[in-house]
Design a protein around this nucleic acid. Sequence first.
DNA 1: CGGCGTGTTCAGAA
DNA 2: CTTCTGAACACGCC
Length: 265
Amino acid sequence: MPELPDVEGFRHVLERAVGHRVNHVDVIDDGVLRGTNGAALRRAVVDQMFGTPRRHGKWLVAPLRRPKQRHRKNEPSVVFHFGMSGGLVWSTGGEQHKHDRIVFDTAAGRLHYRDMRKLQGVRLMPDDAATAELVDAGYDAAELTLGQLRQTLEGSRRRLKPALMDQSVIAGLGNLMVDEILWRARIHPEEPAGDLPAERQRRLHRSIRGTVEKAIPTERVPGHTSWLTGHRDERDGECPRCGTKLRHTRSGGRRTVWCPRCQAR
DNA sequence: CGGCGTGTTCAGAA
DNA sequence: CTTCTGAACACGCC
């Protein structure tokens, strides 16, 4: 599930916990903790509260605050990554899910870190370290400028799809989003990233910003039939724009869907 | 049983 | 040095 729009949705979920004291942290499966353990997580979080969460690419950072005390510099932050199957859910009842791995119990409700496959997980790090790590990542796709896109593609000898999926180049785009973006821009996924003509750079940039902007309100890449994503699992799927039978290939080791007519080389 | 997947990282090859 | 490929991680679904 999680690409930039999904994580943006999880940021909204996390906002519901902001300002409420965490009374208890239930570590149901410490296999999702990275570089920390249940005791350390509880020590850092219990009796604290979450401050305003921020997202960069597919990372979500939740800074901790001490209730009724002046904010101290560089409190720890809880850093979430959701892999392919994770998410955050807010609940006010006692419900529990089979794949809940960590549950933060606050005075107002419970925040569930839920993840079936456990490919990524939850970290604890000083807030400035979290910030440094995110700054080190690529430009966030939701705010990417044309100039930044040009700069990142310039001199690259890679193909377009792997380049766009590289989180250290542009942060937030995943397999589905990139296919959607290239389809909307009418650009072939194997096109060399480095020598894209200026007009196609502009089209690609508009497509990145436009696709992200439209996907964020739905909190995911829409499966609408007017989107390419809505057809990628059909056996004989057709291009929603021109009706041509979609091609299924691999690019950068990832399943790739594209229209041979709209995205001709 | 085998294959596959909205992510990331690593070793090893080209 | 850059880029690519396949495997690994873990788990449910076909």
